[in-house]
Lab assay of single mutants.
Amino acid sequence: KTVKFDGLQFDFDNPEKALKFALEVAKQKGAEVHIHGDEIKIE
């Protein structure tokens, strides 16, 4: 899975870790997590 935000991109082999990371970043930024297939966007 790939996590994208602020023009940055982070690749994870483990989908659970990717989602956990995305949710943590979103919480800190006050943003929402959007999942599109293998891509997780924080907006």
Rank of each mutant, 00 (worst) to 15 (best):
K1Y: 14
K1D: 01
K1E: 04
K1P: 10
K1Q: 09
K1M: 14
K1L: 13
T2Q: 05
T2Y: 07
T2W: 05
T2G: 04
V3R: 02
V3T: 03
V3Q: 02
V3F: 00
V3D: 02
K4P: 04
F5V: 10
F5I: 08
F5Q: 04
D6S: 02
D6V: 00
D6F: 04
G7E: 06
G7V: 04
G7N: 07
G7K: 04
G7P: 03
G7I: 05
G7L: 03
G7H: 05
G7A: 04
L8F: 10
L8P: 01
L8Q: 08
Q9W: 08
Q9R: 10
Q9N: 06
Q9E: 10
Q9P: 01
F10Q: 03
F10H: 01
F10L: 05
D11V: 12
D11E: 12
D11Y: 15
D11T: 12
D11F: 14
F12T: 02
F12L: 04
F12W: 02
F12I: 03
F12D: 03
F12Q: 01
F12V: 01
F12N: 01
D13I: 07
D13M: 07
D13N: 03
D13A: 07
N14W: 02
N14K: 01
N14Q: 05
N14I: 04
N14H: 06
N14S: 13
N14M: 05
N14Y: 00
N14V: 05
P15W: 15
P15A: 13
E16A: 06
E16D: 10
E16N: 04
E16R: 03
E16T: 07
E16Y: 05
K17Q: 13
K17I: 12
K17D: 15
K17L: 14
A18P: 00
A18R: 01
A18G: 05
A18I: 01
A18Y: 05
A18N: 10
L19T: 00
L19F: 05
L19C: 14
L19E: 07
K20W: 08
K20T: 03
K20V: 05
K20I: 10
F21R: 14
F21I: 14
F21G: 15
F21M: 13
A22T: 00
A22W: 11
A22K: 00
A22P: 14
A22L: 08
L23N: 13
L23G: 12
L23R: 05
L23H: 12
L23C: 15
E24H: 00
E24P: 00
E24G: 01
E24V: 00
E24K: 01
E24S: 04
V25H: 00
V25G: 00
V25L: 13
V25Y: 06
V25C: 15
A26F: 00
A26N: 00
A26I: 04
A26R: 00
A26P: 00
A26Q: 02
K27D: 07
K27S: 09
K27F: 10
K27R: 11
K27I: 11
K27T: 08
K27E: 10
Q28S: 10
Q28F: 04
Q28N: 09
Q28P: 01
Q28T: 09
Q28H: 08
Q28A: 12
K29L: 14
K29G: 07
K29A: 10
G30A: 06
G30Y: 05
G30P: 02
G30H: 07
A31G: 11
A31P: 01
E32P: 05
E32N: 11
E32G: 10
E32Y: 13
E32W: 13
E32D: 10
E32S: 13
E32R: 13
V33A: 03
V33I: 12
V33W: 02
V33Q: 00
V33Y: 01
H34A: 07
H34R: 10
H34S: 09
H34W: 10
H34K: 10
I35P: 03
I35V: 09
I35D: 04
H36R: 09
H36W: 11
H36N: 12
H36I: 12
G37V: 08
D38V: 09
D38Y: 08
D38N: 13
D38A: 09
D38T: 11
E39V: 14
E39Q: 08
E39F: 10
E39A: 07
I40P: 02
I40H: 03
I40A: 05
I40L: 08
I40V: 04
K41F: 15
K41A: 11
K41R: 14
K41C: 15
I42W: 03
I42H: 03
I42Q: 02
I42S: 03
I42N: 03
I42Y: 01
I42G: 02
I42M: 05
E43T: 11
E43Q: 09
